[in-house]
Simulated assay, not measured.
Amino acid sequence: MSETTLNKATTRRAEGSPRRLSGRHAPRLDRDQRKLLIAAGFIAPALIMYAAFVLVPLGMSLFYSTLRWDGIGRWRFVGLRNYLIVLTDPDLLQVIGNAFNLILYFTLIPIALGLAVATVIRGHMAGPFGTVTRTVLFLPQVIPLVAAGIAWSWMFASTGLVNQMLTAVGLGSLARGWLGDFTFALPAVGMIGAWVLLGLCTMLLVTGIAKIDGSIYEAAELDGANKWQELIYITIPALRQEIGVCVTITVIAALASFDIVYIATAGGPGISTMVPGLEIYRLAFAHRQVGLASALAIVLMLLVLLCVLPIQWFARPKR
């Protein structure tokens, strides 16, 4: 056999071997690719559920907010007109303002009282006093909000416990139907929300204060610091993240409040306690203005983001 023939045969075998090899053995994935596939397998179910129950409804709400539709008949595209109504209608602006007023009660009162309680029981958290205190304060968080709203509605009634206590201490002139008063109905609802959120804020702050090294307080006491200075210069800076979580939760609870207001006042008297969540429900199901209700819902979502994102930035640990 000539040298030329041998070279051609060798070349053909060399060219054919990759095709035969690739036909017999599938390409193997490297380690990083296998990890990526495994991670995708774990993430996929949660991502599908998130898309089905969050992203798709959000997209539908965005679409509905550009329509004039009663939810049953034919719809008509109106563009951004619903958003213009939300941002210019005096009643809807008052509804949004009511939600921001509730932040004062839902946020400031629970965090201030929770911080005070956490500071008081700081040295007794391991004993029975700390256990009983935490249990009693956390009970409102366990009680269903509907039950809490009903109970407080009875207490704020004209013949309820609040007015009876005022009368007993000689302040009967201040007694009134709190939830039916145009001036005091919203503060009364705010107090209900503050009572509900107090336990959660207290537990978060107690957990955070337990992580502070006790030697820091001992050193401050040796330097002559009083309790107020310890609170301002040690406790509050150390609880930066916990306070941020409390503010985030309570602000969202105030802006997205529904059940307590619905049970206690149903938005009355007038619209003095009407909040966006309840107004969205009323517009969509009572007045059948699905487009306007969707636009208000989108505006509420944006307001929540505008309030929460700066809080998260402020509360993140500094490097």
Results as ranks from 00 to 15, higher is better:
Met1Asp: 12
Ser2Leu: 03
Glu3His: 10
Thr10Ala: 15
Arg12Gly: 13
Arg13Gly: 06
Arg13Thr: 13
Gly16Cys: 04
Pro18Glu: 04
Arg19Lys: 15
Arg19Phe: 08
Arg20Thr: 09
Gly23Ser: 10
Pro27Gln: 07
Arg28Gln: 15
Leu29Cys: 09
Asp30Arg: 06
Arg31Ile: 10
Asp32Trp: 13
Leu36Gln: 14
Leu36Ala: 15
Phe42Lys: 07
Pro45Tyr: 11
Leu47Trp: 07
Met49Trp: 15
Ala51Trp: 08
Val54Arg: 09
Leu55Pro: 09
Val56Tyr: 12
Leu58Val: 08
Met60Ala: 14
Leu62Cys: 12
Leu62Phe: 14
Tyr64Ser: 14
Leu67His: 05
Leu67Cys: 08
Arg68Leu: 13
Gly71Leu: 11
Ile72His: 08
Ile72Met: 14
Trp75Tyr: 13
Val78His: 04
Leu80Gln: 11
Arg81Ile: 04
Leu84Trp: 06
Val86Asp: 07
Leu92Pro: 02
Leu93Ser: 03
Gln94Thr: 09
Val95Ile: 12
Ile96Cys: 06
Asn98Trp: 07
Asn101Phe: 13
Phe106Tyr: 09
Leu108Met: 14
Leu115Ile: 02
Ala116Gly: 15
Gly123His: 12
Met125Pro: 00
Ala126Thr: 10
Phe129Met: 13
Phe129Val: 14
Thr131Phe: 15
Val132Leu: 08
Val132Arg: 00
Val132Ala: 12
Thr135Glu: 04
Val136Leu: 15
Ile143Leu: 01
Leu145Met: 15
Leu145Gln: 13
Gly149Phe: 02
Ile150Gly: 01
Ser153Trp: 02
Trp154Asp: 11
Phe156Trp: 03
Ala157Leu: 12
Ala157Phe: 05
Thr159His: 14
Leu161Cys: 09
Leu161His: 03
Val162Leu: 06
Val162Thr: 02
Met165Glu: 09
Gly170Gln: 04
Gly172Ser: 03
Leu174Arg: 10
Arg176Gln: 12
Gly177Val: 10
Gly177Ala: 14
Leu179Val: 03
Gly180Arg: 04
Gly180Cys: 01
Asp181Met: 02
Phe182Asp: 11
Phe182Arg: 11
Thr183Tyr: 12
Ala185Glu: 09
Met191Lys: 06
Gly193Ser: 03
Ala194His: 02
Trp195Thr: 04
Val196His: 07
Leu197Ser: 03
Leu200Ile: 09
Met203Ser: 13
Val206Ala: 02
Thr207Trp: 00
Lys211Tyr: 08
Gly214Phe: 00
Ser215Leu: 11
Ala220Ser: 08
Glu221Pro: 05
Gly224Trp: 05
Asn226Val: 08
Asn226Asp: 15
Glu230Ile: 05
Ile232Asn: 10
Tyr233Met: 07
Tyr233Asp: 12
Ala238Thr: 08
Gly244Cys: 07
Thr248Lys: 00
Ala254Tyr: 04
Leu255Trp: 00
Ala256Leu: 06
Tyr262Lys: 08
Pro269Ala: 03
Pro269His: 01
Pro269Glu: 06
Ser272Asn: 12
Thr273Arg: 00
Arg288Leu: 11
Val290Lys: 01
Val290Arg: 06
Gly291Val: 01
Ala295Gly: 04
Val299Thr: 10
Leu302Pro: 04
Leu303Cys: 05
Leu305Val: 11
Leu305Ala: 08
Pro310Trp: 06
Gln312His: 06
Gln312Tyr: 06
Phe314Thr: 03
Arg319Val: 11
Arg319Ser: 10
Arg319Asn: 12
